[in-house]
Design a protein around this nucleic acid. Structure first.
Lengths: 235, 235
DNA sequence: TTTGTGTAAATTGTAGACAATATGTATTTT
DNA sequence: AAAATACATATTGTCTACAATTTACACAAA
């Protein structure tokens, strides 16, 4: 009863990341240490270690004597996202095509297969997480520890934003997902061929598709921003 | 005053960052929890929280059941650094010129004043930390949470690499430092004027200066890479 | 009614002790 | 003598309990 799981602590870490990415834990909400510790069947010290690591990775924000808050998303967040995304996505795709290993490309193919399966089955959360995983592997391929932190941060919020705008009744979104899935296949092919320039170009196109989708919803409706219950706004 | 001292825990966090940046704790060395806890006069749980946060920020690497290791620097590290630095430095400088506040510009001036003072006094560690602080404030000015993680990571290793190559007997380095200090003044002026393009351009020039310095030493001599030892041999 | 203060409850921060795991050494066996 | 295993030791991981800080509420005074 010890080896099969990768220790309860790392399971807790992974699950909290997942819940934040899927917006099961919404941006801005405050986390209760005792509640989480009980839920994951660990005591508070290791849970606090997990929260501290998540703080370093910018999944959560720590407030002194006030606990942990899921990293909020503001209006400015979206603007900054639009500035940083194309640059980093293109750079990472270029490096991925240059440095990808055989095993990594195999991983990518496996994920893509499961990704298409999730699309067919209409499993939104699973599809979103697999999309995140797909792009995370591309980030690993780039193998650059200086681009990785921002790339990971981008993926966190790209995933969260994607979850915000999901609407099963919008047929256009289904169409766009089909295009996105095809682009994933193109990514695999270009990376396998080592075509760095084309991969960077495709990354921009892939981003533009996503951006158009986000803008369609963000402009008229506005971004839903749960605030949590912070007593006084800083600054 | 409500917070005259910044709690022993955050003091520990800051000091460990400083010691890693100045290579007082060299890349690759393993950290002893009990030893550090005693040194900072706190118990192991809060120290472990600090180490977990540093792991999230990529100052250290956590090994299961083997403690924390100061983030190593390899040969590949330097190559990746050269790829990422110009892109991010330029982007951040551009955004800093667009978004800087009056207070931040005042901070920058204050730091620059102390920076020149440290140069005159030949205080290497202080100069290096103030240089790091100067560029960290520019990062804050850019105010983009997606670029910030990689930018911070870059600054960590730029500072560590700079500490590696310091050589007080090399007159050329003194000359280059004078140029760098003048460029800092240019940064302040351009940011104050809101000239984003010129600031981005200057960032590239500033980087090229630093790159030339690094290459001069890295190419003939090779990078000194302490490997560290498993927790036993130290002391 | 409003505002200020004091006390109580709840939550976060810390400490010390204990359990689990890995490493090093010594002894035994081939 | 060399290798493998078992034991001893050291270090990491976790838990329970306690201290400190903050928040909420009640009550009193203006």
């Amino acid at each position: 009863m010890k080896q099969p799981v990768k220790t309860k602590k790392s399971a807790c870490l992974d699950d909290l990341r997942r819940r934040i990415l899927t917006q099961d834990l919404e941006p801005g909400v405050y986390l209760d240490e005792m509640q989480l510790a009980e839920a994951y069947d660990i005591s508070r010290p290791p849970l606090r270690e997990v929260l501290n690591q998540l703080a370093g990775e910018e999944y959560v924000l720590l407030h002194k004597n006030r606990g942990a808050q899921v990293m909020p998303m503001t209006h400015k967040t979206l603007r900054n996202f639009f500035v940083a995304a194309p640059m980093l996505y293109a750079a990472v795709a270029r490096l991925a095509a240059e440095h990808a290993s055989r095993d990594q490309i195999a991983d990518l193919r496996a994920i893509q297969s499961r990704f298409r399966c999730a699309i067919e089955q209409g499993d939104t959360a699973e599809r979103t997480l697999l999309n995140q995983h797909f792009h995370a592997v591309i980030g690993d391929m780039a193998d650059n520890e200086y681009l990785a932190p921002s790339y990971r941060r981008l993926l966190i919020d790209h995933t969260r934003i994607g979850m915000s705008f999901y609407n099963p009744r919008n047929a256009a979104l289904g169409e766009q997902r089909a295009i996105a899935a095809d682009q994933h296949d193109d990514f695999i092919r270009l990376i396998d061929a080592g075509d760095a320039e084309a991969a960077a170009h495709l990354a921009v196109a892939h981003w533009e598709l996503s951006r158009a989708e986000i803008e369609n919803f963000a402009t008229p409706v506005g971004l839903h921003i749960p605030l949590g219950h912070a007593p006084n706004g800083s600054r």
